[in-house]
Design a protein around this nucleic acid. Structure first.
Lengths: 203, 203
DNA sequence: TTTATTATTTGACCTAGGTCAAATGCCAAC
DNA sequence: GTTGGCATTTGACCTAGGTCAAATAATAAA
């Protein structure tokens, strides 16, 4: 397993880094009982490369903290897969609106490598929140993280061209990117496979 | 595989409306003391058309619940204003990462008409949350709302062309749109003024 | 090692939307 | 009503990135 500092250096945006810090600190400072409860409602699962952790049409009953490996979230539009997130270690995979509303969603979550994840069940977490108010604050911190994260993605779409977006993602995690098919990276960047290929040769 | 129209109806704003309802219901069902506290830390302010409720470089110390009128949030990139949100009545204007981290942000919030807003101060709200746990849940609901909202905006950018995005916004609030300069709508849609003008004549 | 399959590159062409500039429309202030 | 200042439209042209198709890598399977 990689060290915390190495992990943090991989997340390029310093703002997001601060958030992650804040959340980790918070979890580490939870009182004994709350921490135990959190432990109790979490379980570890392993998936093989290519496995689907979640399918479109299903309700997202849990979120998945990536312990080891890489995963992605995508949806299908006009027969094309659009990758919305690529998750590295310690990041949290979840189909947000499906999870929040507990209704069927449009997202797939797929293991891009063999992955080991911590699964936290929605219903159990909601129950636990009633007894352990600190968990509500934890939930809030995660939501703040997501909200800011998505807003930043939006700004990227508005202000950066394809080349800049690509440079940003390889800066974030150069060594991971090598294992991910270009098709997936292209769809994450919102460009075609061919355009991505051309960008790569030019740089 | 699912059809285009079915997909589009999925990401239309009905989900968001439901969510707003949920939040308002929650507020209405708060216990007496909590409701009073919330009342106590809120104040009403009025702004004239063109006034700035928030400037880039400032810390976003409060969020603004629009009671009456229209406002927008924008930032400046390469000397161009990019409108990120247009707020109608009952919506909440806030520069999210500036608000959450209480650090200077890049956003402006501007009154597009005369507006009346309920201002909730960050520091006071944080204090109140310590004493009234229901307010943490309220905060969480707002964050969930933002997160899902931004994710939906992202999907719009990925799956809809300029014309579809324009149709969506006039469908949402046809009568309001008439008062808003095309420049602003265009920058909200992520297209140029000229393109928007051409889209409008074609429809 | 050969074959089958999938991933990536390259080329030729196309399109949505951008940019720049000029023309018109729309008010508000004189 | 005129005049100035925006807001919007229209035209001519440009560019980033898309699409389709074919050519090469790379891999995995036999």
């Amino acid at each position: 397993m990689r060290g915390q500092s190495e992990f943090l250096s991989d997340i390029c945006s310093c703002t997001m880094l601060l958030y992650i810090h804040k959340i980790f600190d918070f979890v580490n400072q939870l009182d004994e009982v709350t921490a135990t409860e959190l432990q109790k409602i979490s379980l570890v699962k392993n998936y093989k490369k290519g496995d689907l952790l979640l399918r479109a049409g299903e309700v997202c009953h849990s979120n998945f903290v990536i312990e080891k490996g890489i995963a992605r979230k995508y949806y299908v539009h006009n027969d094309k897969e659009i990758t919305t997130e690529i998750y590295f270690e310690k990041e949290v995979a979840v189909s947000l609106d499906s999870y929040i509303m507990q209704k069927p969603g449009k997202d797939y979550v797929e293991a891009l490598t063999d992955v080991s994840v911590i699964v936290v069940n929605y219903a159990k977490f909601q129950e636990a929140k009633k007894k352990f108010p600190e968990l509500v604050s934890l939930d809030l911190m995660f939501m703040e993280y997501y909200a800011v994260w998505f807003e930043k993605r939006l700004v990227e779409y508005q202000t950066m061209d394809a080349t800049q977006r690509y440079l940003k993602i390889i800066e974030k995690s150069p060594h991971y990117i090598q294992n991910i098919p270009l098709t997936i990276i292209a769809s994450y960047l919102g460009i075609s496979l061919e355009t991505l290929s051309r960008i790569r040769t030019k740089i």
